[in-house]
Structure formats: structure tokens, C-alpha cells
């Protein structure tokens, strides 16, 4: 593999690892709060992926700068993924909020947030 490829892709690999960590937290952790932590990590890494694909070498933040003169798309970072991710962040907060509500509701009934204990008490 060429150096340039590695340099250009190491961020993707970090993101991939983060996605795996998040997914691991959601699927394998036995504590319900930890699952929610995993979900946040998972969603943040997706956001990171989008922000990463938006970036452009030798380009600046997507706010039109009159000093740069005529508007050339090459001068500005792709704004579309940023926009999408604003929405995604909000969605992630909303989901987390619903998750919290469910956690409280579960705790109120079973006095535990551990999946194994929960399964025992549900019987």
C-alpha cells in the first residue's frame, strides 16, 4: 500500500474502529446505560464519517468570504454533509432522550438496569 493511500485513509479506519466500538457497546454490553453510551458512540462516528467525506483539501469553512472574491466551489468545504449531520445530531439527541425515558420507566418497575438481573426479575 502506498503511503498516500494510508495517509488518506487512516481517518476512515479510525472511524471504522469507532463504529465497531459503538456497535459492540450496543449489542454486547449487559448494562442498559452502557448500551445507550454505545449508541451515542455509534451515532457520533457516523457523523464523523459524514464530516470526513465533506472535507476538501485547500478549502475553507462553508461561509462565503467576500475577501476570496468570486465564488468557486473548490474554495469551500462541501456544506451538504454538514447540514445533514446537524439533523443527525438532533435525531441522536432525541433518540437518547427517549432512551432515558425508557430507562427511568424500566428502573421504576424493576429497580435494576442490568440486563441479566432484569431478565430474572421479568419472569
Amino acid at each position: 500500500m502506498e503511503v498516500e493511500f494510508i495517509a488518506g485513509h487512516n481517518l476512515y479506519w479510525i472511524i471504522s474502529l469507532l463504529l465497531l466500538v459503538g456497535l459492540y457497546g450496543m449489542l454486547a454490553k449487559r448494562n442498559l446505560v452502557k448500551k445507550l453510551v454505545g449508541m451515542n458512540i455509534f451515532q457520533t462516528s457516523i457523523i464523523l464519517f459524514y464530516v470526513a467525506i465533506a472535507s476538501k483539501r485547500n478549502a475553507t469553512v462553508p461561509v462565503i468570504d467576500a475577501a476570496l472574491g468570486s465564488v468557486d466551489p473548490a474554495h469551500y468545504i462541501n456544506p451538504l454533509p454538514h447540514t445533514l449531520m446537524l439533523t443527525a445530531i438532533v435525531v441522536s439527541v432525541a433518540t437518547t432522550g427517549v432512551g432515558f425515558a425508557l430507562l427511568i420507566s424500566i428502573f421504576r418497575r424493576y429497580r435494576t438496569l442490568d440486563e441479566d438481573t432484569l431478565l430474572k426479575r421479568m419472569r
Binding site: M26, M39, G99, L102, M122
Partner: peptide
């Protein structure tokens, strides 16, 4: 609530996958 919580976690995995695929 427990069923809904599991639904939420797996549902988020699902929508997350979809979002990543869209990306």
C-alpha cells in the same frame, strides 16, 4: 418498557446502518 428499549437499541442500529449506507 424493556421490549421498547430493546426495540430502540436495535432500531437505532438499523437506522444507523441506513444512514451510514446512504453516506
Amino acid at each position: 418498557p424493556v421490549a421498547a428499549y430493546r426495540y430502540l437499541i436495535l432500531g437505532s442500529v438499523g437506522t444507523g446502518f441506513y444512514l451510514l449506507g446512504t453516506g
